[in-house]
Simulated assay, not measured.
Amino acid sequence: MTGTDERADTFVRTDDGVSVAYQRRGTGIPLVLLAGQANNHHWWDGIREDFHPARSTVTLDYRGTGASDAPREGYSTPRFAEDVVCVLDALGLERADVYGTSMGGRVAQWVAARHPDRVRRLVLGCTSPGGPLAVERDASVRRALAGPDPDAVRRTLTELMYTPGWTQEHPGPYGTLGDPHMPPHARNGHLTASNRHDAWDVLPRITAPTLILHGGQDRLTPPENAALLAERIPDARVHLLPGARHAYFEECRDTAGALVRAFLA
Score class of each variant (00 low, 15 high):
S56E: 03
S56M: 04
S56C: 07
S56T: 05
T57N: 07
T57Y: 07
T57Q: 10
V58L: 00
V58M: 00
T59V: 03
T59I: 02
T59A: 05
L60P: 02
D61W: 14
D61C: 09
Y62I: 01
Y62G: 03
Y62E: 02
G64D: 10
G64E: 10
G64F: 11
G64C: 10
G64P: 07
T65Y: 13
T65R: 14
T65E: 06
G66K: 01
G66M: 00
G66I: 01
G66E: 00
A67T: 01
A67W: 01
S68L: 03
D69M: 04
D69K: 04
D69G: 10
D69E: 10
D69T: 02
A70K: 05
P71A: 14
P71K: 15
P71D: 13
P71N: 13
R72Q: 12
R72L: 14
R72M: 11
R72V: 08
E73T: 15
G74C: 02
G74W: 05
Y75W: 04
Y75H: 06
Y75C: 04
S76T: 11
T77C: 07
P78C: 07
P78Y: 12
P78K: 06
R79T: 05
R79F: 03
R79P: 00
R79S: 03
F80E: 09
F80T: 07
F80K: 08
F80Q: 08
E82F: 10
E82K: 13
D83G: 03
V84F: 10
V84E: 04
V85T: 05
V85R: 08
V85C: 03
C86M: 13
C86T: 15
V87L: 06
L88D: 10
L88N: 10
L88E: 09
D89P: 13
D89Y: 14
A90P: 11
A90C: 12
L91R: 12
L91K: 12
L91I: 07
L93N: 05
E94K: 13
E94Y: 13
E94G: 14
R95Q: 06
A96D: 14
A96S: 15
D97A: 09
D97H: 14
V98Y: 05
V98A: 05
V98F: 08
Y99G: 06
T101L: 12
T101C: 11
T101A: 14
S102L: 08
S102E: 05
M103H: 08
M103N: 11
G104S: 02
G104T: 01
G104M: 02
G104C: 01
G105I: 09
R106I: 12
R106F: 11
R106E: 15
R106K: 15
V107M: 01
V107D: 00
A108T: 08
V111F: 08
V111R: 10
V111E: 11
A112Y: 07
A112T: 03
A113H: 04
